[in-house]
């Protein structure tokens, strides 16, 4: 079942001196409970797709058909936690904004914090947590409102390599457990192959779809997936598409 169908999506930016075509005729579907990764060179316009999807930016042309009342949750590259709020209050930010802060949301939040090893830090402030923990808090904050589709914009790129592997693993487990449909933007091909069911490869500006891969092999966790033969094959193919090799 498709939650979202994107057809010929385009985005043009206007500056004083010129017009910049960021996205050109992008079409793909977002299937329920699937994990889509969008990879492409830095600055090609990958994040713009996510921003258009959740209404942070307007599209220039094209069509986006989505199910009625579909809710998006956005997770950013930086954790963007509010330093003056406790971990608990940070997690409940979306609920507060949408005026749906009640016992149910608080319990939901407590359960998520407990499940992902952050409960004992609920009254701490963000600066007392490590980068990886902060990123998990940011994910819980996004999950509190029960979004139907999660949009992850380079969620791990602010972390060092070791943390990146571990947190991507954790986040993947959380998303699978919560049965979430996810669209993740990343410039890291290996990260995409280790996590996604579908990978959309974009070209340089203006970004067009170069290839769409259905990643089809016996998947375990993202870290373990990296050890499989197919993992390298997919990576090589995509690097080929991106002219890296």
């Amino acid at each position: 079942m498709n939650l979202v169908e994107i057809k010929n999506l385009g985005k043009i930016y206007h500056t004083i001196n010129s017009e910049i075509i960021a996205l050109k005729d992008i079409s793909f579907d977002i299937e329920k409970n699937k994990f889509i990764a969008i990879v492409g060179p830095s600055g090609c316009g990958k994040s713009t797709i996510l921003k258009i999807l959740c209404g942070l930016e307007d599209k220039s042309y094209g069509k986006i058909n989505k199910e009625k009342n579909l809710k998006f949750g956005f997770m950013f590259q930086q954790d963007t936690l509010f330093e003056w709020l406790t971990i608990m209050d940070n997690c409940l930010l979306g609920a507060k904004i949408n005026k749906c802060l009640n016992n149910d949301t608080i319990n939901h939040c407590i359960n998520l914090l407990k499940a992902y090893g952050l409960y004992e830090f609920k009254d701490n402030y963000p600066n007392e947590l490590s980068g990886g923990m902060r990123q998990r808090v940011a994910l819980i904050r996004t999950l509190i409102l029960n979004p139907d589709v999660l949009l992850l914009d380079e969620p791990f790129s602010a972390l060092d390599y070791q943390n990146r592997l571990k947190i991507s693993n954790d986040v993947y487990e959380i998303l699978k457990k919560e049965n979430k449909t996810t669209v993740m933007v990343t410039h890291d091909v290996s990260e995409a192959v280790s996590m996604a069911d579908t990978i959309i490869v974009l070209s340089n500006r203006p970004a067009e779809i170069v290839n769409i891969y259905k990643i089809d092999y016996d998947k375990e966790s993202p870290i373990k997936n990296r050890l499989k033969k197919e993992f390298n094959e997919y990576c090589n193919k995509i690097w080929g598409d991106l002219n890296v090799i």
Binding site: L56, F74, Q78, T80, W84, L93, I97
Partner: peptide, 29 residues
């Protein structure tokens, strides 16, 4: 004020008044 934090609040459908009181004013104490 961090632009990403404003975007985050917008992604939660925050009104301009909410962005002002909960982020801009509070963050600039």
């Amino acid at each position: 004020t961090d632009d990403n934090k404003i975007k985050l609040m917008k992604s939660f459908n925050a009104s301009k008044w909410q962005i002002y009181t909960m982020l801009v004013l509070r963050g600039n104490i």
